[in-house]
Amino acid sequence: MTSLGERKRDRIDMLAAQAGAVPTGEVGLSLTRSAFRRLRRDPVAIIGAVIVVVFLVVAAFAPLLAPKDPIAQYLLSEIRPGSIPGAREGFPLGVDNLGRDLLSRLIHGSRQSLLIGVVSTVLGVAAGMTLGILAGAFGGWVDTVVMRFVDILLSIPSLLMAITVSVLLGQNQWALMIAIAVTQVPIFARLLRGSMLAQRGSDYAVAARALGVRPARIVFGHVLPNSVSPVIVQATLSLATAIIEAAALSFLGLGDPDIARPEWGAMLASAQAYLSIRPWLAVWPAVCIIVVALGFTLLGERLREALDPKFRR
């Protein structure tokens, strides 16, 4: 009897010990790390990531990858009204109306598009988060003032806003980036403020207050880290919007005037006149814009799911 009881007890102790032990490799699995772990298993996220990475690599190594100089003119003798040379040896996608190699221009154009997209989104996130933190952390009249200002920004159509800003700042690529950033600010400010206000009343914030943690530490150590995931997701999605918006502004002639830097939007604009004789001049830059935007959108959407605590296991 006793031995049976003892065996049972030993067995229970052993199970209890096992239950207490954590499998190795699981220690310190933070929110971000478990999110990345889930992204890695998600085919859609991988497709998005591959697209983004491919374009980033192309942009980074554009001078090495491009077969020709993007501004040198070739085959000029063959360009005449009603005919632009198509694909041939050395020019896999043909040349544009000024005899420049289309492929090389597309490759170099990725630099401009990604640079504008990334820089303007970073600027927008930085400014938007600053406003969001101000409103979310202080609440009260600070919140009211900041949010009314943001509402004003939000009420202006983004393209109109970008046009106004780039007209005000003059025509160069920095003005373009700032113009696009300004249109992103209200989105990030509202998003961060909303999620911070929601997190401020959460149990762990109250628990931290009950332990006498100082307010600044609660805002930056507790509330903010739990509020940024929608901002991260939106930033990924906004990259796509920024690239499209940059193309749109260039298309409207408000882009970078420096012809040494080819840009997809501007290429699209100049191809417009030749749509009937060589539509591919317009199709290729458009495809590039769409695919990059798609890559960021796919990644962003899946990131949203991966960072959502409701999907966590």
Partner: peptide, 25 residues
């Protein structure tokens, strides 16, 4: 109050999961 909370008086809440910050170890 802040100096007293956590030092001289403390509180344990009902839901242990939501009372801990999920993003911090």
């Amino acid at each position: 109050l802040r100096r007293l909370r956590g030092a001289d008086m403390a509180m344990v809440f009902q839901d242990p999961l939501s009372s801990l910050n999920p993003t911090l170890a």
